[in-house]
Design a protein around this nucleic acid. Structure first.
Lengths: 204, 204
DNA sequence: TCCATCGAAAGACACCCTGTCCGATGAAAG
DNA sequence: CTTTCATCGGACAGGGTGTCTTTCGATGGA
């Protein structure tokens, strides 16, 4: 059986579309009934795909959520590199403000991913950890830059600033205000920016 | 069949002990393997009790976790009423500092309860909501008192202070620093107190 | 002492979900 | 016309939940 070479443009395209349909189904499912347990069966039905296809494409339930997280990261723009802002203070505050609409838009899905990861890190295959270390690296970079430009509050080290910024700029903090207190996204953005300013920046 | 009256001191005691053993088993289970899914079956085995007994005593899986939360609330001292501190500022900061050891001690269990509630409020039968509204009421009381004693930062209303305190004194904030950043409990306590001071209190 | 009562055990049952596997189908690619 | 591959459809074992019914055994009233 001499293997025959295949070009498979159309077939690969179709496979990619199937993958998309499934990811969209999980996303929609989490958005529509965030409070219900999610079964692979239901997702497959929503994507008009057989359950075994989900396992074929993503390997496992965990792989599915992992892929969803990565998809969100890419499409949502969470991985946007530092924008060309030379001023450290403005750069930080701008990036905080920019993250809030993303948190708000994808809130049910993010909430589910984070909570699933907290209960069982395996269950989401590591996306949340990856998102976390990216974020931590970004914040450390911001903190360093603030230190270099000498705009950190007196008596605060870059490391302390990173800790506080971590706590005060993340999805969890956002959601405490957005869902926990029922505030609109723009007010939450104001509070998050204010918090970052008062906690780590020099008063001016 | 004329019903006979029963006094049942010993029997009620035994029942109470059974209840305790089961609650202790869930607690221990969450503490020992926080990352594994929790089955009623396993808990029953740990408590040396039949699975049906768990359902008999707590009604449902949700009832079990609900009871665990209430138990924690009572035994942990989360419901401690305002201590006799006349100074609003000191009262607030003291109560923040007091909560941190409790968060740290019960962290795996609290983490599980909060995450389960986030994924499905039904699944823990409302304890988390109850804990939340108690806490919200307490913070509102603190904020009012701070306003009356005129020690709120200029330009901040009691409502805004409540929002910020909510975000910055809760278990989620604690855990962002404790687990998320790997800081020891006493450093987290310092950071939480500092955060509360800088975000809502007048500089002195 | 006798026995009604009630906490608890034990096990059966229906149901749902996960993972895995395998044979069948049908369209694209050669 | 034939190979290849994505996908389907269904079967299967395993494990979990909730519910119910039967039985056991110790307590404590009479």
């Amino acid at each position: 059986m001499a293997t025959r070479k295949y070009d498979q443009r159309l077939r690969a395209d179709a496979a990619e579309q199937t993958r998309r349909r499934i990811l969209d189904a999980v996303y929609q499912r989490l958005r529509e009934e965030p409070a219900e347990p999610v079964s692979v069966e239901r997702i497959a039905a929503m994507a008009q795909v057989s359950r075994s296809t989900v396992y074929l494409v993503f390997g496992s339930r965990a792989g599915l959520f992992d892929a969803l997280g990565d998809d969100l990261r890419r499409r949502g723009g969470f991985d946007r590199p530092a924008d060309g802002e030379a001023d450290a203070r403005r750069g930080l505050l701008h990036s905080i403000r920019a993250s809030v609409p993303l948190f708000a838009e994808h809130r049910p899905v993010l909430r589910a991913l984070y909570s699933m990861a907290a209960l069982d890190p395996q269950a989401v295959g590591g996306v949340v950890e990856r998102m976390g270390s990216d974020r931590a690296a970004g914040l450390a970079w911001h903190a360093e830059r603030l230190a270099k430009q000498d705009v950190l509050a007196p008596g605060i080290t870059a490391a302390e600033a990173t800790h506080l910024l971590w706590a005060v700029t993340g999805f969890e903090f956002f959601d405490q205000l957005y869902t926990g207190r029922g505030l609109p996204a723009d007010e939450v953005a104001d509070l998050m920016v204010t918090a970052a300013e008062r906690l780590v920046l020099q008063r001016y």
